[in-house]
């Protein structure tokens, strides 16, 4: 784990120094006496019960015999063997998910940057209104919004029907294509890219932009040399957030894609529901989690917030 994740200021109450020779009970009692430990207890309990326990259960299930519920009682690599066997096409779902997630990230970075720039530097008092407009769709369930898209694009739906009524012929078929899945994902995850980006850009001091211009830099050079490097924490967090969310996305492919494309989360869902093969689903979930975890750590190792903020 990168040290950047651990804020030294949060951990500044050292436990009372206890000589090594003290019996374990006494050391435990001393640690217990520390106010920090007691204050952290509710969070520890919540995380253990709500976060760690399900992870442990999934991890254990992934080693259970296929199509069984014999968790903790048997141990086998059969599920992983099945996933990695050459006939298995689960890699295709993986590829779709990663591909969609990468594209979503890339498109969102390009789309959200100008909006974020406007919100930080140009819109002034209107920028809070703009944020509200972007948050607003989140109040409606994602599935409902996606079904709205379906109604809009479906044959004889809002778009197609209106065009026919106007005598302009029908609309092209976009529903149930990878393109509309990507569009749906970009739409769904826009706020998750926009707000970290806005935060990142608002961390760029105005003075530095003025100084760069004064030293001869044009708009592009200011962007490349000053704005992007200083907004990098926000850019990286936004990218990571959208990537992680997008790789787990399932509704877009199911609703807009009409199951023409099976993404990895859909595979997991199928394993847990129709197939009633919890161990296989768990093994898949473990692989996805490991992949996302490794990626997150890699990004956070690069993301040295303290240095970027000039505190170190």
């Amino acid at each position: 784990m990168s040290t950047a994740l651990i804020d030294p200021t949060l951990n500044n109450t050292p436990l009372p120094a206890v000589p090594a020779a003290t019996p374990l009970g006494a050391r435990f009692a001393a640690a217990w006496a520390a106010a920090g430990t007691r204050c952290a207890l509710p969070v520890v309990v919540l995380l253990a019960a709500g976060f760690l326990a399900p992870l442990v259960a999934i991890f254990a299930y992934s080693f259970a015999p296929p199509r069984s519920f014999e968790v903790f009682r048997a141990f086998t690599f059969a599920n992983y063997a099945e996933l990695f066997s050459l006939e298995n096409t689960v890699w295709l779902s993986f590829a779709w998910s990663i591909g969609f997630a990468l594209l979503t990230c890339a498109v969102l970075a390009v789309v959200a940057y100008p909006i974020a720039y406007g919100m930080v530097f140009l819109f002034g008092r209107w920028s809070s209104l703009v944020s509200v407009l972007f948050v607003f769709p989140l109040f409606v369930s994602e599935n409902v919004r996606l079904y709205g898209w379906v109604l809009f694009f479906i044959k004889n739906g809002v778009l197609d029907g209106s065009l026919k009524w106007l005598g302009l012929g029908g609309a092209p078929t976009v529903l149930y294509t990878p393109g509309v899945i990507l569009a749906g994902m970009v739409y769904t995850y826009l706020p998750f890219m926009l707000f970290p980006l806005t935060l990142g850009l608002s961390m760029v001091p105005r003075d530095l932009i003025d100084a760069a211009r004064d030293l001869g830099a044009n708009r592009f050079q200011i962007w490349r040399e000053v704005e992007v490097p200083l907004a990098m924490p926000g850019i990286l967090i936004g990218m990571l957030l959208t990537f992680v969310l997008a790789i787990g996305a399932v509704s877009e492919a199911k609703i807009l894609g009409g199951q023409s494309v099976i993404v990895i989360s859909h595979d997991i869902e199928i394993a847990f529901t129709y197939a009633q093969n919890w161990p296989l689903g768990s093994a898949l979930a473990v692989l996805v989690t490991a992949f996302i975890g490794a990626l997150t750590l890699a990004v956070f190792a690069k993301l040295d917030l303290d240095r970027l903020l000039g505190r170190r």
Binding site: A217, L230, L308
Partner: peptide
């Protein structure tokens, strides 16, 4: 400002925090 042969030393100094001393000086 970027087309004027003038240069301002800011009150805040406006040094680029993501650059070393040398990179700051070399910026222009």
């Amino acid at each position: 400002a970027n087309k004027r042969p003038t240069c301002l030393v800011f009150q805040s100094l406006a040094l680029f925090p993501h650059m070393s001393v040398g990179q700051n000086i070399e910026f222009p």
